Simulated assay, not measured.
Amino acid sequence: MIVYIGAIEGDGLTVATADPATGGLTVTDTLADVREPSFLAMRGTTLYAVVEEPEGAVTELDIADPAAPRVRRVVATGQAGPTHLCLHGDHLAVAHYTDGTVTIHDLDTLAVTDRLRHEADEPHAHQVVSHGDWLVAVDLGADAVLTHRVDNGRITQHARCDLPKGTGPRHLAFHGDTAAYVLGEYIPGVTRLAWDAGAFTVTGHHLVTAPGAPETFPAEIIAADTHLYTSNRGENVIARLDLDGTLRQSVPVGGDWPRHCAVDPTGRWLYVANQRSHNVTWLPRDPATGELGEPVGSVTVRGACMVAFA
């Protein structure tokens, strides 16, 4: 399997291979000309990476040969500090943390077709997620999850779900067509949301930290089968929860400041990008129960912050 590893304040985009039997990663290439690729998205033979800099941009790469990505172009977003992006229909959506703006880009040219800044004293758009006809944005500064329509390249806000002040919502994961889970960075927990017709309703909140845990700043949430996994910076663990919010495990990641985590296509391994210890680790996972084991390996990647499978 080919793996792409994004980084912040690192050496660019790292390409690796993963052994599905052992989980082992082997770095095969590093593209230094891909600047600050802190988040990645793919469709077909194209890979997109944010350029998380004060003058934000998107890097587009050709991955017709997955093992040998080639930069096609770098296009400015016109906004500051992009941290996330996703494909949405015939467009690319980019979330900008620094100025709280979501930009919409034409896929043929990557030109900006529209932009929307969230309403808040200090908006920080941290994530965008495409779900059917809807584009969902998570804004850490606004303490809100917002739903948008994108029509002919124009973005309009449809609904807003406010969370308790100080939650600091960072990332969201859907599970099926009726539920989603949003992870708080400042109040370290998962808020359960009901989803219906483009709008969210809060249905519950659950902590992702074990009793006595140190100060924790969760970063990523993913849904795999009937399990949720969160990366908890500070505590430096992966938390495993049931869909009802019950905390089942807190497993050390084998590194410092886990930013992003991902389950591989076999379901047998969970990979963690540890930003401050500059490594990616892998933990065995039982596909039947979702249970995680402690890390069995590590590879050095400076500033590692995301793992994506080709």
Results as ranks from 00 to 15, higher is better:
residue 68 A to L: 10
residue 62 D to V: 01
residue 52 E to M: 01
residue 97 Y to P: 04
residue 59 T to K: 04
residue 94 V to I: 10
residue 100 G to W: 05
residue 70 R to W: 05
residue 72 R to I: 14
residue 62 D to K: 04
residue 92 L to K: 06
residue 63 I to M: 05
residue 59 T to W: 12
residue 100 G to K: 06
residue 52 E to P: 08
residue 70 R to V: 15
residue 66 P to W: 14
residue 86 C to F: 04
residue 68 A to T: 12
residue 91 H to N: 02
residue 44 G to L: 11
residue 61 L to G: 06
residue 49 A to C: 07
residue 69 P to C: 13
residue 59 T to Y: 12
residue 45 T to V: 09
residue 84 H to A: 11
residue 78 G to R: 06
residue 75 V to S: 01
residue 91 H to Y: 14
residue 52 E to R: 05
residue 45 T to L: 11
residue 85 L to N: 05
residue 44 G to A: 12
residue 50 V to Q: 04
residue 56 G to P: 03
residue 80 A to H: 07
residue 69 P to Y: 14
residue 90 D to C: 02
residue 85 L to I: 13
residue 79 Q to Y: 05
residue 65 D to R: 14
residue 53 E to I: 11
residue 96 H to P: 02
residue 75 V to N: 00
residue 99 D to C: 08
residue 76 A to G: 12
residue 63 I to R: 03
residue 72 R to G: 06
residue 98 T to L: 15
residue 64 A to S: 15
residue 50 V to L: 02
residue 82 P to N: 06
residue 63 I to Y: 08
residue 52 E to C: 04
residue 57 A to D: 11
residue 97 Y to D: 07
residue 98 T to C: 12
residue 84 H to L: 08
residue 92 L to R: 09
residue 69 P to T: 12
residue 46 T to Y: 00
residue 96 H to R: 01
residue 53 E to D: 15
residue 61 L to H: 08
residue 86 C to I: 02
residue 48 Y to T: 00
residue 72 R to A: 11
residue 93 A to K: 08
residue 65 D to C: 05
residue 52 E to W: 03
residue 84 H to E: 07
residue 44 G to H: 06
residue 61 L to M: 15
residue 94 V to Y: 08
residue 49 A to H: 04
residue 89 G to V: 15
residue 77 T to F: 08
residue 95 A to W: 07
residue 87 L to A: 11
residue 72 R to N: 14
residue 54 P to G: 07
residue 96 H to G: 03
residue 87 L to Y: 14
residue 80 A to R: 14
residue 50 V to C: 03
residue 75 V to I: 09
residue 77 T to C: 10
residue 78 G to P: 13
residue 54 P to Y: 13
residue 99 D to L: 07
residue 64 A to N: 13
residue 82 P to D: 04
residue 76 A to C: 01
residue 78 G to T: 09
residue 50 V to R: 01
residue 62 D to F: 11
residue 61 L to E: 06
residue 87 L to F: 15
residue 95 A to N: 08
residue 58 V to R: 00
residue 99 D to V: 03
residue 51 V to K: 01
residue 45 T to M: 12
residue 96 H to I: 00
residue 50 V to T: 12
residue 96 H to M: 00
residue 61 L to R: 10
residue 97 Y to I: 06
residue 44 G to E: 10
residue 76 A to N: 07
residue 55 E to R: 15
residue 79 Q to A: 15
residue 67 A to P: 03
residue 92 L to N: 00
residue 65 D to K: 11
residue 94 V to K: 03
residue 70 R to D: 08
residue 85 L to S: 05
residue 56 G to A: 08
residue 88 H to R: 06
residue 51 V to I: 13
residue 93 A to C: 07
residue 61 L to C: 11
residue 49 A to Y: 01
residue 62 D to Y: 09
residue 77 T to Q: 07
residue 68 A to C: 02
residue 78 G to W: 10
residue 82 P to E: 01
residue 84 H to M: 07
residue 70 R to K: 15
residue 84 H to S: 15
residue 71 V to S: 09
residue 75 V to M: 00
residue 88 H to Y: 01
residue 46 T to P: 00
residue 91 H to Q: 02
residue 94 V to L: 11
residue 55 E to S: 14
